[in-house]
Amino acid sequence: MTTAEMSTNCTFELLLRWDLSIDDLETKHFVLVHGGGFGAWCWYKTIAHLEEGGFRVDAIDLTGSGIHSFDTNSIMSLFEYVKPLASFLEKLGDGEKVILVGHDFGGACVSYAMELFPAKIAKAVFIAAAMLTTGQSTLDMFSQQADSNDLMRSAQIFLYANGNDQPPTAIDLDKALLKDLLFNQSPSKDVALASVSMRPIPFAPVLEKLSLSDKNYGSVRRFYIETPEDHAIPLSLQESMVNANPPERVFRLKGSDHSPFFSKPQALHKLLVEISKIRLA
């Protein structure tokens, strides 16, 4: 056997082992849930990496996000905001499970889905995300560090579609501060993409307190990925959420800003694959 033939056989055997390991997983189907202001578009690198590795991937546009044609100011509840994700999970076949991945405010949406569809979710992965306890809102979580995060406070622009004498209907982010807040380690091309693609964040869902039970939400395996160079949800706040509601395992993406799908796409991909392979002890 020639060296070239040996090399070809070794490569084939490695690919075979990789294929077998993928097929042997509880699920190889990822569902990606974007954060506040983002859309399915932000996952383009993650989608490509996972699909190249043999995984099935769906990225969801939540109501009024990405290309979903709905006025953000008109979203009055978390139920309404999460509806595209709930509809997707509802349509899964009997016995079909997915790995739900949530970023930022998408963490609260993933938690909401875990409570509704625990049997359809094999694992939940929170990436720099709102991982709340029952009775807590995303606003409650953010208020823990509101006084210390001047950048976040400066970047927020409240929108009042119902008049200035009424509560805010949405939150926009100052485009001039986007890079420092969300993308301080990300490539300029991705910052440019985000600056023309991001939409306002509906305010009512941010105020809504989650109702999470041990029977439903608590039955789903949870994993958290920390982003240490994060200026939007600082590491101290991420650690506070982890300590208050401990997941099965915590990972840290060294050098990542708030948006690891841009700043550390390959490292994020490796972590997601690793999490997909973690079996019950």
Rank of each mutant, 00 (worst) to 15 (best):
residue 12 F to C: 07
residue 192 A to I: 05
residue 39 G to H: 01
residue 47 I to E: 05
residue 201 I to G: 00
residue 236 S to V: 09
residue 225 I to L: 14
residue 40 A to C: 08
residue 242 V to D: 02
residue 185 Q to E: 12
residue 12 F to W: 11
residue 115 E to A: 08
residue 155 A to K: 02
residue 89 L to R: 09
residue 99 I to T: 12
residue 222 R to P: 05
residue 215 K to N: 03
residue 258 H to R: 02
residue 17 R to A: 14
residue 268 L to V: 13
residue 54 G to S: 09
residue 96 E to R: 15
residue 139 L to W: 06
residue 272 L to D: 03
residue 130 A to Q: 01
residue 9 N to G: 05
residue 119 A to Y: 10
residue 168 P to F: 13
residue 215 K to R: 13
residue 199 R to E: 08
residue 255 G to Q: 06
residue 236 S to P: 02
residue 7 S to I: 13
residue 152 M to A: 13
residue 206 V to C: 13
residue 238 Q to W: 01
residue 253 L to D: 02
residue 168 P to C: 04
residue 32 L to P: 04
residue 19 D to N: 08
residue 53 G to M: 11
residue 23 D to P: 00
residue 257 D to S: 12
residue 258 H to P: 00
residue 168 P to I: 04
residue 251 F to L: 15
residue 175 K to L: 01
residue 77 S to T: 12
residue 148 S to Q: 11
residue 276 S to H: 08
residue 78 L to E: 02
residue 117 F to E: 03
residue 212 L to M: 10
residue 121 I to S: 03
residue 15 L to S: 08
residue 237 L to F: 02
residue 180 D to H: 11
residue 258 H to N: 06
residue 98 V to I: 13
residue 70 F to A: 11
residue 257 D to M: 05
residue 28 K to R: 15
residue 114 M to C: 15
residue 73 N to F: 06
residue 124 A to H: 01
residue 273 V to I: 13
residue 93 G to R: 13
residue 198 M to Y: 13
residue 191 V to E: 13
residue 20 L to W: 03
residue 164 N to S: 06
residue 138 T to R: 02
residue 191 V to W: 04
residue 249 R to W: 11
residue 238 Q to V: 07
residue 57 V to E: 00
residue 137 S to Y: 01
residue 265 P to T: 09
residue 83 K to W: 00
residue 25 L to T: 06
residue 160 Y to R: 13
residue 22 I to H: 04
residue 92 L to A: 06
residue 48 A to L: 08
residue 229 E to K: 09
residue 141 M to R: 00
residue 115 E to D: 07
residue 64 G to L: 04
residue 105 F to H: 02
residue 50 L to R: 09
residue 259 S to M: 12
residue 217 Y to C: 08
residue 276 S to D: 09
residue 47 I to Y: 05
residue 149 N to V: 02
residue 229 E to L: 09
residue 104 D to A: 15
residue 125 V to R: 01
residue 145 Q to C: 07
